[in-house]
């Protein structure tokens, strides 16, 4: 049962990083934590008391559920690929704005908007 609470805690920790902290790289790490918590939740659900790893073995009758394992295995690899897309976006933002802090980026955007309105 503690596994479920652990998953909730880690999910909320990731969520907190995403909404409360301004650095984009840190936000990506927060998303990573969020993601891992979902993995932990699924794998915990698949566990059967007294079960063994789902690889056919002589003399073992009870196995844990292989289905969540399959789903999470592919999700991890997809996760790293999408994280890479996120980091690539961060790098492009850094090229365009010279900063990865949300605050600085917004300030620059506002300044540019004000400049545009002044011209109109």
């Amino acid at each position: 049962m503690y596994n479920y609470f652990l998953a909730v805690f880690l999910m909320m920790a990731g969520f907190y990083v995403v909404i409360a902290q301004g650095n984009l790289v840190k936000k990506v790490i927060g998303l990573g934590m969020f993601q891992t918590s979902v993995f932990i939740l699924y794998i915990s659900i698949g566990k059967v008391n007294g079960g063994q790893a789902p690889i056919l073995t002589e003399g073992v009758t009870s196995y844990s559920n292989p289905l969540p394992h399959v789903l999470m295995l592919t999700a991890i690899v997809v996760g790293v690929a999408t994280t890479a897309v996120g980091l690539a976006l961060v790098i492009r933002i850094h090229e365009a704005y010279g900063s990865v802090e949300e605050h600085d980026i917004q300030q620059r955007d506002n300044a540019e908007d004000a400049l545009l309105e002044g011209e109109l």
């Binding site: 698949g46 790893a53 690889i55 394992h69 690899v77």
Partner: peptide
């Protein structure tokens, strides 16, 4: 939790590749 395949993937991906990618990003930002 008996998920050997998943553990294997997480160790290779999470601890290996994503750390390298994060560090490459930090080098630039």
């Amino acid at each position: 939790l008996d998920a050997v395949d998943v553990a294997f993937t997480e160790a290779a991906v999470g601890a290996g590749i994503s750390t390298v990618l994060m560090l490459s990003t930090l080098r630039l930002t």
